[in-house]
Simulated assay, not measured.
Amino acid sequence: MNVGFIGIGSMGSLLIDTFIGSGALKPSQITASNRTFAKAVCLADRHPGLQAVPLNRDAVIDQDIIFLCVKPLEYKNVLDGIRDALLPNQLIISITSPVLLEQLEESVPCKVAKVIPSITNYMCSGTALCMYGSRMTDADILRLNGLLSYISEPLQIDEAHARIVSDLSSCGPAFMSFLLQKFIDAAVEETGISREQARVIASEMLLGTGQLLTSGDMTPEELQARVAVPGGITMQALALLDRELDGVFNSVIRTTHAKYHEDLERVAVSFYGKEVNGP
């Protein structure tokens, strides 16, 4: 399998590093292009055998799968530049939610899919959220999921739910680490414990909590019940959190969805010159 990458920013380079590190791909199986070619050259230096190419078209030719890791408003120009180099049996994968499968299928002659990765994939953990275009066969899905399974748990989702599942899977690590940072800050300010010690303890706690909620088969409610003794310290603190955080995550979700719908409209204008309705 040969895999091309167009765009090697934060997520593109993370995917390449992780596919190689996990053994899913050898560097010689990867071709990468980037708007700043020197960045692609640096990536090739880090992974000897990886081919850095100056043109996006060069990252398409002879590739089985091509990951598009560019900003949503760049998609139309990128697709226009590579369309005549694409073949029907190739698979284009978008990693951004505001670009719709319908828009992709209208723009290219090949198969398309959307995969929303997460920074957790860097540790070969978390999910990869998958949406498959109408031209994909069962064999195509099996091949793609087989590649993604090296670094994640591939999970098929409805495109209409792309934003909320992205909140949980892709934005969630930033949200949870922000809350952890605030917990650590408060511990340091209130008690004088060293920041490094607090960070290590809190980070290990979060790792163990994640394991309890996955391989330990506990729900969040069950975990809280196991820790919080009625009338005890944890129960009091949970009651405080329940009061203070009431509605906070509803506002977070409304905020991300508002930005998503704004992005949907801007992408539609870039593709069609007018606004269209999306999921």
Rank of each mutant, 00 (worst) to 15 (best):
N77Y: 02
D80G: 13
G81H: 01
G81Y: 01
G81S: 12
G81N: 08
I82A: 11
R83P: 01
R83H: 05
L86M: 05
L87E: 10
P88L: 11
P88Q: 09
N89Q: 12
N89Y: 04
Q90I: 05
Q90L: 14
L91W: 00
I92V: 13
I93V: 14
I95K: 09
T96I: 10
P98L: 13
P98C: 08
V99Q: 14
L101Q: 06
L101F: 00
E102T: 12
E102N: 11
Q103H: 12
E105I: 08
S107I: 06
S107N: 08
S107Q: 11
C110F: 01
C110Y: 04
K114A: 12
S118Y: 04
I119G: 11
I119E: 11
I119D: 03
T120A: 14
T120K: 10
C124H: 07
T127G: 05
C130D: 01
Y132Q: 04
R135H: 12
T137I: 03
A139I: 02
D140W: 03
D140G: 03
D140C: 08
I141T: 08
I141F: 03
L142R: 12
L144Q: 02
L144V: 05
N145R: 12
N145V: 02
G146N: 09
L147D: 05
L148P: 13
Y150S: 15
S152E: 09
E153I: 05
L155H: 03
D158W: 01
D158Q: 10
D158L: 11
D158R: 06
D158C: 04
E159S: 14
A160I: 02
A160E: 07
A162V: 10
I164P: 14
V165D: 06
S166A: 15
D167Q: 09
S169T: 02
S170M: 07
C171S: 15
C171M: 14
F175T: 06
M176A: 15
F178I: 08
